[in-house]
Amino acid sequence: MNKENTIPALDIDQQTPNEQTIEEIVASLGDTVGEARVENPKMSVSGVDVFYAEKQAIFGVDLDIANNEVISMIGPSGCGKSTLLRCLNRMNDTIPICRVTGEIMLDGEGIYSKDTDPVLLRARVGMVFQKPNPFPKSIYENVAYGPRLHGLNRNKADLDDIVVNSLRKAGIYDEVKNRLDDAGTSLSGGQQQRLCIARTIACSPEVILMDEPCSALDPIATAKIEELIDELRENYAIAIVTHSMQQAARVSQRTAYFHLGKLVEVGDTDTIFTNPKHELTEKYITGRFG
């Protein structure tokens, strides 16, 4: 299982002494290795810096997210991968001290520009969280929540369709079809997480962001979710943050490796795991730290 390592990664790497500031270390990492851009991207991140009050958490990241593809973001804890993910649908707006500069585009429109509305953005870019967080409502109401908010259904039958379809797509319909009125919280952890995915799908998003979706789940539930992610790829652009390198290798087509808020290396998953170019990437995937 993934172990949280609280020691900063570079302390183990003895080449760099303790006294260096994060800025200096980041500068020493050099430019991003590999190709950050893809043809015809769904989302495109350019030169993004993120600050929590005075503290900088993300340093000049460039990255594209492509249609019908899963991109995984890996790296030691505190490397900024979750922070970047939360920027992609402006969830960071809820943290008052958080400040984002640079540009993030969705279909060529800047999501931090004045014209873009966070509500609409979040309907188009859905998010699945680390801990399953179903609302304290029935299973049906959980899934119907988004469509109702946004007025996506014309009538009750429409809504029923959306709910059933979303549950089907999330691969949980057969397990819950007879108890749609039960509380969402009555499900098991893995089922809850798939319910949350169904809830996200119900808003018909274009991109789905997943923040360590399996970290609170057992291996069997994890396997089901991974299978589901692979199916969802056909219809959505997916970005997933994970602690598990195996998971990244299993579900994603491209992988981005982050270190201390810097995108160190990005490329095809196969290449990253078999032939990493950057020294740190190699050390990380071979388990020298993490």
Partner: peptide
Amino acid sequence: PQAMRDGSLGLGATKSE
């Protein structure tokens, strides 16, 4: 829990919703 709020905001709900 904040996770509840995040879940709802992440689906595109406004704060009052």
